[in-house]
Each structure stands twice: as structure tokens, then as C-alpha cells.
Measured scan of single mutants.
Amino acid sequence: LRLEVKLGQGCFGEVWMGTWNGTTRVAIKTLKPGTMSPEAFLQEAQVMKKLRHEKLVQLYAVVSEEPIYIVTEYMSKGSLLDFLKGETGKYLRLPQLVDMAAQIASGMAYVERMNYVHRDLRAANILVGENLVCKVADFGLARLIEDNEYTARQGAKFPIKWTAPEAALYGRFTIKSDVWSFGILLTELTTKGRVPYPGMVNREVLDQVERGYRMPCPPECPESLHDLMCQCWRKEPEERPTFEYLQAFL
């Protein structure tokens, strides 16, 4: 395994491009020591290896001592969030954005069929390849993070704006909380990567959403798509659509 080009840095580690087995181009995620327990990670990795779908980033291998390494397929255009905010983002029109959403829903419909939960679905965790191919990455890892700023769910590192209220408040993460996050991801797509709930801080978002506030229809977004977002944001988790439905609708 060779680490060649550093692609990015996040709160919990770095991402590199490299070569595996001398020939395969891969992405390598390294986790800061202390982010998660190697034992817990190894268990999760076994499950992650079983998830194989064309719209999920394929896991190739893991190094399960500290520092933990995760070796996955390489996606040339990086994260969907950076892609939307970058040069190419300007030229993306609604049909392409909807197609990308459908690809993500397709990957998540598979996660749904496998009775698995992602827990951290957002544009930053979707990767883009050639020809606007989108794949879901980092599934299941969020559960293992041991950082206090994260586990408190009120901490600075927790993605509260993407998280369903029952998950943020009571830790009830299910495929239905993933559906909520998918609704937020749809706003990221239609606004080219704007942060959700602009002008609001995490605490406010939690309070307002509890009181029934939902983001309005983004500019140039059809009402039918906003309606779909609002279905994803129904207060009762069981009233939210399935990913199978979302995939078919898109």
C-alpha cells in the first residue's frame, strides 16, 4: 500500500490517493489515533465489506491497528460538496442534479434492503467520479466515533443540521433518520452546496425544527421536489418515504 497524494483533511483524519497491490488506484482514509476503537472498527469493517453495490464506494481493505487505515475505490472528482461548490458546479442544471440524487437514493435503497443504517448521509460523504457518477461513502463509521465533541451530539463536530430530530435528541438512528438526511442533501444539491438552514446555528436549528420549522423551497427548485424534501422531514419517522420510493420518484 503506497500513500501518494494527500487529498484532504477532516476533523478525524486525512484522505490520500495511493496504490494498492502495486496496480490498483485507491483512496486511503487514515484516522487520528483515539477516534475509534480498533476492535469496534474491525467489526464494522466486516459488515462494510459485505455491502456491495454500484452506488456505494467499495471497501477494499482495512488496517485495524492505530493509525487505522481504510482502503476504498478511488473517485476522481472528490466529495459531492466540493464538486457542487467548484468550477463544474456552476454548469450543473436541475436534470443532472436530480440524476445525482437518484443515484444516491439507489445506493441508499440497497442499504435499506440490507437493514443497515448510514448515520451520516450528506454531500460531504458522497463521492463523485467521471460522468457525474455518484456513490455513497463512509457508511456506518459515524457510530464508532468516540470523540466527546461528537458523541455528545451537541458538540461542534456533530452534523446536527443533517440529523433527524429523534436521532439528534435521543440517539434513535434508523434508515428513517437517513431519509431525513437525504432530504437535507437534496437542498445541498439544489443550492450547489450551500450550508443548510443558512444564518442559523446548530442550537437554533434543533429548537426550530422541533417546533415544526422546515426549510423553504430553494430558488429555481420545482415545488414537486420541495414537496419530496418535506416528506423526508415528516416528524414521525414511519411517515417518511422509503429510499425505494425516493429512487422511483426521482
Rank of each mutant, 00 (worst) to 15 (best):
E4D: 08
L7F: 15
G8R: 01
Q9M: 09
Q9L: 04
G10A: 00
C11M: 04
C11Y: 13
G13F: 03
G13I: 00
V15T: 02
V15D: 01
M17K: 10
G18A: 14
T19K: 11
T19D: 12
W20D: 14
W20M: 13
W20R: 14
R25K: 13
R25I: 12
R25H: 12
V26L: 07
V26M: 09
A27R: 03
A27I: 00
I28D: 00
I28G: 12
T30L: 14
T30A: 05
T30V: 04
T30G: 13
L31A: 12
L31D: 10
L31Y: 04
L31Q: 07
K32H: 02
K32T: 04
P33S: 12
P33K: 12
T35S: 11
T35V: 04
T35M: 10
E39C: 09
E39G: 10
L42I: 07
Q43K: 07
Q43M: 13
Q46G: 12
Q46H: 10
V47L: 06
V47T: 11
M48W: 00
K49N: 04
K49G: 05
L51Q: 03
L51F: 07
L51V: 05
K55R: 12
K55H: 13
K55V: 07
L56Q: 03
L56M: 10
V57I: 12
V57T: 09
Y60L: 13
A61Q: 09
V62D: 06
V63F: 07
V63A: 10
S64E: 10
Y69C: 06
I70Q: 04
I70Y: 01
V71Y: 00
Y74N: 13
S76M: 13
S76D: 13
S76V: 12
K77Q: 10
G78L: 10
S79L: 01
L80S: 11
D82A: 08
F83M: 08
F83T: 11
F83H: 10
L84S: 11
K85S: 07
G86C: 12
G86V: 08
G86I: 09
G86E: 10
T88Q: 10
T88V: 10
T88L: 10
Y91G: 09
L92E: 09
L92H: 09
R93I: 07
Q96M: 15
D99H: 14
A101E: 04
A101H: 01
A102R: 14
A105I: 07
G107W: 00
M108Y: 06
M108S: 14
M108V: 14
V111S: 04
V111W: 15
V111P: 01
V111M: 15
E112R: 15
R113T: 13
N125H: 00
N125F: 00
I126Y: 00
I126D: 02
L127E: 01
L127V: 13
V128P: 02
G129M: 11
E130Y: 14
N131I: 11
K135I: 10
D138E: 00
F139L: 02
L141S: 03
L141I: 02
L141M: 06
A142D: 01
L144T: 08
Y150I: 02
T151Q: 13
T151W: 14
A152V: 05
A152H: 01
R153G: 11
Q154I: 13
Q154R: 10
A156Q: 06
A156H: 04
K157W: 09
F158W: 04
W162Y: 03
T163L: 01
P165M: 14
A168C: 07
A168I: 06
G171K: 04
R172P: 06
R172Q: 06
R172H: 13
R172Y: 07
T174R: 14
T174M: 15
I175Q: 15
K176C: 10
K176R: 12
K176Y: 14
V179F: 01
I184A: 06
I184M: 05
I184V: 12
L185D: 03
T187C: 08
L189I: 12
T190L: 06
T190S: 04
R194Q: 12
P198R: 05
V201E: 13
V201D: 14
N202C: 04
N202R: 04
R203Y: 14
Q208G: 10
Q208S: 10
V209Y: 06
V209S: 07
E210Y: 12
E210K: 09
R211Y: 14
R211K: 09
R211P: 04
G212M: 04
G212S: 07
Y213F: 09
Y213V: 06
R214S: 06
P216Q: 10
C217E: 08
P218T: 05
P218M: 07
E220Y: 11
C221M: 07
C221D: 03
P222C: 09
P222Q: 06
Q231V: 13
C232I: 08
W233L: 05
W233C: 08
R234E: 09
E236Y: 13
P237G: 12
P237K: 15
P237E: 11
E238W: 13
E239T: 12
E239V: 12
E239P: 14
F243K: 03
E244F: 10
Y245I: 12
Y245G: 13
Y245M: 12
Q247C: 10
F249D: 09
F249P: 06
F249V: 07
L250M: 14
